[in-house]
Design a protein around this nucleic acid. Structure first.
Lengths: 249, 249
DNA sequence: CGTTTGGTTGAAATGTGTCAAACTTTGTGG
DNA sequence: CCACAAAGTTTGACACATTTCAACCAAACG
């Protein structure tokens, strides 16, 4: 038996890629052979910062991180929540300067991979190149949906939509059960992701609780009635570009 | 002399790619040899629609188009303005179902390219694959900035930011002069892009005119004082990932 | 157990939306 | 070239979602 770290079912990166295409043994092995420098990073630490010119990218192996940007006067906008299997700064392979920062929302286990190793991998395995490209395209699709969500939905459905998205994404990587999921996101962070004030997030969450749409306490989100939440959030998972098998909810 | 349509300096697609990497003669020729089906599309026509499964992508050769999404109750959010050289649905090469629609804002000249031809091109020219990938990554960076813009800036700076972005992007493809640029975007379309109401767009534009930040009449935008507009919009072109030579303003 | 972090509350201020009407410009056909 | 229609812009009054501020409370933590 291989050590747990390299067993493909325990490697979130491999798991993620397998969810979008069937890897050959060769490709799977190439992924597992990627030289990864592991790091445990505590909560509230920036992993990379806007303006950085990284020579390596990283995969989130466990924990929650988020990608964010700041306005000139210091307001924060979270543009993505990153979970196990995500490679949120893989774009630095092509774009030298980062236009965003990434920070940890919980203690995280991170695997750094040099751009050199990634280039080699992509050279030898065009299908993996395609898979990584595809990943970045899905990421782009999510950004588009966020523009829609923030631009055209009021706070209540906006929050509902975000919760739907998080549940589905967590389910895909096996981090949700039939009741709900762990969701270590504070109200301040929800506010920064939805483009509203913390106070308003609080009021909206209370309303949603009162309406029986969610049970949210501490790091745990339960969803008693998926269909009603889905409708409240006007949520259609099309934009996540899941493969059919990855049943929604 | 080659016919105008295949002269590289008149082919917006080639021009765009040359702006991000130096093409070899071989690569340039491969691009010019791409079988493109030309079409003239009048204003206000959808080129593709959410849910479509296209077997070809297209390049905008002239005119303005925009990518948009709709909420369930029929509100529109424009997520991108597409100009000459853009290939706004190239993602359909990897993601079978479209999660957005694209419509024309002006009469447009469009060049359709089959996915098959694009695949062949990418197979033979890995650097072009990389260039297209890079393009989609920059697109993603723009979406992120839009999330920030819509989420964390008020209507006035939000509009200023959008105008800055449009001017810079148009300049890169040679569609701006030192006074400003042509900008065939109506107030309704601004509203749908910024996530505000038409009425409010109107008021904000009047304010900006009164402040001497812009001259906007019909399809023409002049910017008397770039630096002030830049500041008003909290605009930093980093996220556009221009090459240094593409001087900003 | 005190301290910190995150959550909750109320009242007042405000940015933005809505509605409905009028106005202006642009394009088109007679 | 005018007349008309269509498209786009402007206006005012009012409604309302959301912000701000400031305080307080609860839970988590060392």
């Amino acid at each position: 038996m291989l050590p747990a770290a390299s067993r493909s079912d325990f490697n979130p990166l491999v798991r993620k890629l397998e969810s979008i295409l069937s890897l050959t043994d060769d490709e799977r092995q190439a992924l597992l052979d990627l030289p990864m420098q592991m790091a445990l990073i505590k909560e509230g630490q920036d992993i990379v910062r806007e303006g950085d010119r990284p020579s390596r990218s990283f995969a989130v192996l466990s924990g929650f991180t988020c990608t964010y940007k700041m306005t000139g006067d210091g307001r924060r906008q979270i543009v993505k929540f990153c979970i196990a299997g995500d490679t949120p700064d893989i774009q630095s392979l092509h774009l030298t300067v980062l236009d965003f920062s990434i920070t940890t929302l919980t203690p995280c286990s991170i695997g750094f991979i040099t751009h050199e190793a990634l280039w080699n991998l992509c050279m030898r395995h065009p299908r993996l190149t395609a898979a990584f490209w595809r990943e970045t395209l899905v990421e782009g699709a999510i950004f588009r949906e966020w523009v829609l969500n923030v631009g055209r939905r009021e706070a209540y459905p906006r929050m509902a939509h975000l919760l739907c998205e998080m549940l589905v994404r967590l389910r895909v990587v096996g981090l949700a059960d039939d009741r709900g999921c762990g969701l270590p996101i504070t109200q301040v962070e929800f506010a920064d992701a939805l483009g509203v004030s913390t106070v308003h997030v609080n009021r909206v969450l209370q309303e949603m609780r009162a309406d029986g749409l969610i049970e949210l306490k501490g790091d745990r989100l339960n969803i008693p009635d998926w269909e009603r939440l889905r409708q409240a959030g006007d949520f259609d998972p099309l934009y996540l570009h899941l493969r059919n098998e990855q049943a929604v909810a």
